[in-house]
Computed example of a mutant assay.
Amino acid sequence: MTKAREVLVIGGNRYVGKRVIDRLLAAGDRVTVLNRGSSPPPPGAVHAIADRNDGTALAEAIGTREFDVVLDQVCYTPHQAALARRVLTGRTGRYLMTSTVEVYEHEHSAPLLTESAVDPASVAVDLDLPWQDAEFLEAHYGEGKRQAEAVFTAGGPDLPFASVRVAHVLGGADDFTGRLGHYADRIRTGAPIAVPPEVHPATYIYVEEIADLLSWAAGEDFTGPVNAASHGLLTLDELCTAVAAHFPEGKAVFEVTEAAEVSPFAFRRRYAMDNSRAAGLGFSFGEAGQWLPRAVAETLGKDL
């Protein structure tokens, strides 16, 4: 009989996170969910309460427990990474961090970016930047994730570390971002959709697929970054077509602008990741074009 794993999930108790927790529990894992107490975990999980920005509180909440794997869903800064690394080094067999495609925001080296385009071992860490400032953090989301990966990577063999760089997530009736709703409102009413002069395609991933991947990754032993994106690029036109299918009287009207603020997913550069490393490790990705209609229908509360 396989021994149940001890899994610590830090944050992420909604949307993708709750799906991952449900999958871990269904697999028989003993799951502890650590957050600030704002929401209880699903039945069957242990609840640990602490502010992950407080190293003392984090250590007290964990106590003397050890884990087979830590899944960190809400690490956004090198400070947060440094605290977690200090508390959990030697206490877990593996540390798995949910990262983002935004780590590649300054990379233009290839049509599809492999993980080597951003090597966390070579990323400079600057703890003196104002990471506690919410406005700064929002404007430097990708940089915060890059530096957090770098801090964990520097932990070496005493803290085996992997990161999952997640593409833009679509789907689910509980999508809280409002991004597809933005397009639904404009297409339904004929309001203009602001786009830059050149709009680039991107890689995406279905919400159920990324939950599958994270729960799968928690049981693997690879280290280093892996890209998580469905097969195939999606263009903004394809997204709008999928939304417009639910509003036959509506129309997508694009308005080109040089302004900094444009519509969601109207990318000025390619956000496209190569997923071959994760596929080679054994994860089977779906085709973005196949799940897109289902993802849009779920989010908009429509029937297919």
Rank of each mutant, 00 (worst) to 15 (best):
G219V: 12
A194K: 12
D68M: 03
K251H: 11
A295D: 11
P264M: 10
F152V: 02
S99W: 01
Y141S: 11
T2I: 14
I193E: 13
V226W: 00
E115T: 14
G90V: 09
L239P: 05
E143Y: 05
E60H: 14
D237S: 12
A252L: 09
L281V: 10
R86D: 15
A117E: 13
R85T: 07
H200D: 07
Q73H: 13
V103K: 03
L281M: 13
V9H: 01
G224S: 06
F222D: 12
Y104R: 04
A150V: 06
L34F: 01
V9L: 13
P160W: 02
A134E: 12
R269L: 07
P264N: 13
V296D: 05
D133L: 08
A134D: 15
V20E: 00
A110R: 06
A279G: 07
F254T: 10
F283V: 10
L236W: 01
P197C: 08
A82I: 00
A266I: 02
D221I: 10
A81G: 14
A59E: 12
M97D: 10
D212H: 10
R179M: 09
R91H: 02
G93L: 09
A218D: 02
A117G: 13
D29A: 14
A217W: 03
H47P: 08
R188G: 07
R277Y: 01
L304R: 12
Q290T: 15
V199S: 14
A288W: 01
R30F: 02
D303V: 15
A217T: 05
D54V: 07
A48M: 05
R270A: 14
I205K: 08
A148W: 01
R14I: 12
T235N: 02
M97L: 12
I21F: 08
I205H: 02
F283P: 09
R188E: 15
R188M: 11
A124Q: 07
S276Y: 04
L234A: 11
V7T: 14
L159C: 13
L292T: 10
G44F: 06
